[in-house]
């Protein structure tokens, strides 16, 4: 299974990024081959609709699951339509989350927020 995590740098010791749509990079990890691939998030600099564009990129790269701290409503709609599962991360570490996913210890992300559109990330 191919999974995606939003990360703050292109390295295995990167931290999970707090924002999905505007994360600088995405990690694509294949649980069968154990291959790591990092990709620039071209949606990060979007004027608007970053979550939607990021979701399009993630599903175009064949991800079947996502591990993220939170997800906006628009991106979540895209993932739901595409049948991609969203899990809540347990820590900021890539390896801890991948291990937890393999052991079936991650829970689905139910904290879908309405988006931070033009509100400067206020919660």
């Amino acid at each position: 299974m191919k999974i995606t995590l939003p990360v703050d740098k292109k390295s295995k010791d990167a931290n999970i990024s707090s924002n999905l749509g505007r994360a600088p990079y995405f990690l694509f990890y294949d649980t069968e081959t154990e291959e790591y691939n990092f990709m620039d998030n071209s949606a990060a600099s979007s004027q608007g609709g970053a979550g939607i564009k990021a979701a399009q990129n993630i599903l175009d790269n064949g991800a079947e699951a996502i591990i993220a701290p939170r997800c906006g409503q628009n991106a979540a709609n895209v993932f739901m339509t595409a049948g991609i599962k969203i899990y809540k991360n347990i820590s900021n570490s890539i390896s801890e989350n991948i291990a937890a996913l393999k052991e079936g210890k991650l829970t689905p992300l139910d904290d879908i927020h309405p988006g931070f559109h033009q509100h400067g990330g206020r919660q």
């Binding site: 949606a43 979007s46 004027q47 608007g48 609709g49 970053a50 939607i52 564009k53 979701a55 399009q56 599903l59 628009n74 709609n77 895209v78 339509t81 595409a82």
Partner: peptide, 23 residues
């Protein structure tokens, strides 16, 4: 159309083009 829209109001999921009207 998906690549053109600078507001990212369009998305192509599996075999369907979806429009985000409010965007």
């Amino acid at each position: 159309c998906v690549d053109f829209c600078r507001f990212n109001a369009l998305v192509y999921v599996i075999d369907k083009l979806i429009v985000f009207n409010e965007i």
